[in-house]
Each structure stands twice: as C-alpha cells, then as structure tokens.
Design a protein around this nucleic acid. Structure first.
Lengths: 206, 206
DNA sequence: CAGGAAACTTGAACAACGTTCAATGAATTT
DNA sequence: AAATTCATTGAACGTTGTTCAAGTTTCCTG
C-alpha cells in the first residue's frame, strides 16, 4: 500500500525540485522582489495554488534557495581555503576575496540571503540556521593557527568579526546606489584591509 | 495672486511634514515592510489617495525618511568626532562605537536605509545621494591626520573601506536571526577591530 | 460680491500580489 | 467495478500601491 503511492510522491518530489530551481533562477534574474508564485507555477507547469502543496510559504521557498546558495558559497570558500600557499594570513585573504567574487558572480542570490526578512513571529527552521553557522568555520581554522593561545569562544568571536567586516566591504562595495566601485579595486581594498586587520590583531595580542 | 495661495500651500506643507513624521514613526515601530499608505493617510487625517499629492511615491517617502535618519546619524557621528581626546585612533574608535549605538537605538530606521530598493529604472535623486556621501567625511579627517602622505582619493577609498567594515560588523551583529550578540560585547569587538585595522594600516604603510 | 475658472481633495476602482479552499479529478483499496 | 481516499485545481479573498473621474474648495475677474 505504501509502495504504491510512489507515483504521486515522486511527481511531487520532482515538482518540488523544479520549483526550487525555478525560484533560484528567478531570484538570480529579477531579484528577490521579482519572485512571484504565479510565474513560478507557470514555469514548472502547475496551478498557482499547487505551489503550496510543495512548500508551505514563499518564506520557506526563499530559505530553500538560500540553503543552496549557502552551500555553493561554502564550496567556493572551501576551495579558496585549500588552494595556494598555506600561510594563515594569505589563506584568510584568499577566503575574503573568494567571498567577494562569489557575491559579485551571484549578486541577486547572495543579496537574497540578507534581504529576506520573515514575519517576526515565525522562527527560522533549524536546517537554515545550521547552514549559516557553517560559514564561520572556514575562517576559524586559519585564525586558530594565528592565535594558538585563544580559547574556542574567543576565536569564534574574532572569526565572526572578521567575516562581518569583509561582508560589509562587499555589501557596500557592490551596492550600485552610490558610486559604483570597480570590482578589481574592491578586491584590492579587501585584500589590503584583511592584511591590515590581521597584522593589527597579531600585534595587539603580543 | 501667488500670495493668496498660501492657505492651501501651507496646508499641503504641513501635511507633507506630518506624513514624513508619521512614516518615520511607522517604520520605527513596524519596520520598512510595515509602512502602509492607508495607515499613513488615517494617521495624518486625509484620504488614501491624498498621499500622492504630497509625495510622488512610497519610494520618495522612504527616501525622505532616510534623509532625516541620515542627518540624525550625522549629528551623532559629529558629536563622537569632537568629544573626548583627540588622538586620531581613538576618535575613529569613538565614531565607530557611535555608529553602532545609533544603529542599535534606531534599529528599524537604520535598517530601512539599506533594505530599501527602488525599481532599477528609477534613479536616486541628487539630494539623497549627497546625504549619503556626507557620512564619510567624519572618517576622512582623522584618517588624514594618520596618513598625511596619502592623496585625497586614497584617503577617500580608505575611509570607505573602514566605514564599510564597521558597518558590516554592526549589520551582522544586530541581526537577530543568528545568535544575538549582546550589545556591550559588540561594542567591545568593534573597538578592538577598529584599533587593529588602524594599527595594521599604519604599520603597513611604513 | 457674484460666479466662472482653476486647482485641490476625495474615495471608489484597478491591477497585482500571497494565500486559501470547495470542487473536480485521479489513484488506491476492497 | 464500486467505493474511498488523496492530490490538484483555479476561482475567490484580503491586502497592497497607485490612478482618476467626480466633487469641493479656493481664487480671480467683472
């Protein structure tokens, strides 16, 4: 009896995957605000209301796309972490540049990660929270090499600060609103400031 | 003939001011997404459609509120710039902390500055762009003292980078989504990283 | 001051949105 | 083959921002 239901279940699962893919593409092309359930339904070939059989909310849909984005970002940072020379300083610089490049190449999807706000009463699902926390681990390892005396919590705080600082530079740097900063200049500035931050942190803890 | 029109003009002007004030309060209380024209109209005592006699768009309304927020932020940063001892390093730290405090105390209004996205085809009015560029000047002066050899453009770039880095720490630090960072800890981390950045930048240019 | 012209205000109406749900249709069991 | 259970549909609802013909008020002129 249970095995016989696979027909509809498979169909549903395929549709759900299609839906998330379509949503991803739509956000990439038209931004988070350009995501419309009716267009999605037309895209994957189902009724408007059917979207809510695959996903409870647009919120959930955005979070699912966000999860995919975060995983791709994670891969990009992983690659930057292992590639090249292994001095902790330069590893951190590579990671920062990789973050910048990823944001530039996936602008709307990356923006959606931060632009999206859910209703205050709804809570983030666990899988989404975990996705986000994984990001800091890339910074954590090189930092641990640089500051062997620091505790786990201290390193976590520093990792978060460094990540946030780079994030800020990327976020405001890629903003078209003000003067558009050319990407190469932005990369250079990021590398510069990351090196300065690390130098400063190292000198400061001696 | 022109002087006779003051009756309606005054009324309009008063209404416009009321509208912006009401919008400001509404954003502060309910966030940018909680801003509704019908509620605004009820608040200031006019018809729903009348909002569009005072302002062409909600976009313009948000920008006008943003302008007010930016001016208050400017004052807060000015106060931090002049108060206390005058070593450039500590001045920059004070400015960063002031930025953090302002964001925390004006959370939704400050968020609205960055969350708001206009349709891609519409262009930012000049007054809005100018408002934003003014912010960097607070950082510019202490930086110029620290790096007397640098050109105006170089200083501008560095000022922007520093501002962006602090902005990132504040933005991610005040995000409730992930682990909520207690404000005192955030302030401490910001002060720490700003000092490190400056130390690093100074050491790096020698 | 009268009365027509000009300008302003109004709220009903429109289009677009996310979301719901009775009704239709398909799949599974008996 | 009939009955029952479940999935899908698209029309309908409640909210949005925005528009605009109609109604009011204000203004200028004779």
């Amino acid at each position: 009896m249970w095995l016989r239901m696979t027909k509809t279940l498979e169909r549903r699962e395929k549709l759900r995957v299609d839906l998330i893919r379509a949503a991803e593409q739509m956000i990439a092309e038209r931004g988070l605000a350009g995501l419309k359930t009716r267009d999605l339904a037309r895209e994957i070939g189902c009724a408007n209301g059917a979207v809510y059989n695959l996903v409870t909310d647009v919120d959930e849909l955005v979070l699912r796309v966000g999860s995919r984005t975060l995983h791709r970002l994670d891969e990009a940072l992983s690659a930057a972490e292992s590639a090249g020379e292994s001095s902790p300083q330069e590893t951190l610089v590579r990671i920062a540049i990789a973050y910048c490049d990823f944001a530039a190449e996936n602008l709307e999807l990356w923006r959606a990660l931060f632009e999206h706000r859910m209703a205050a009463d709804k809570v983030l699902p666990d899988w989404s929270v975990n996705d986000q926390l994984q990001l800091f681990r890339h910074i954590y390892h090189p930092l641990a090499q640089l500051f062997p005396k620091r505790s786990q919590e201290e390193l976590g705080v520093t990792a978060r600060s460094l990540f946030s600082a780079v994030h800020g530079m990327v976020a405001l740097g890629l903003e078209q609103r003000l003067v558009a900063v050319p990407l190469p200049a932005l990369r250079k500035e990021i590398a510069n400031l990351v090196r300065a931050m690390i130098d400063g942190l190292v000198a400061r803890t001696k």
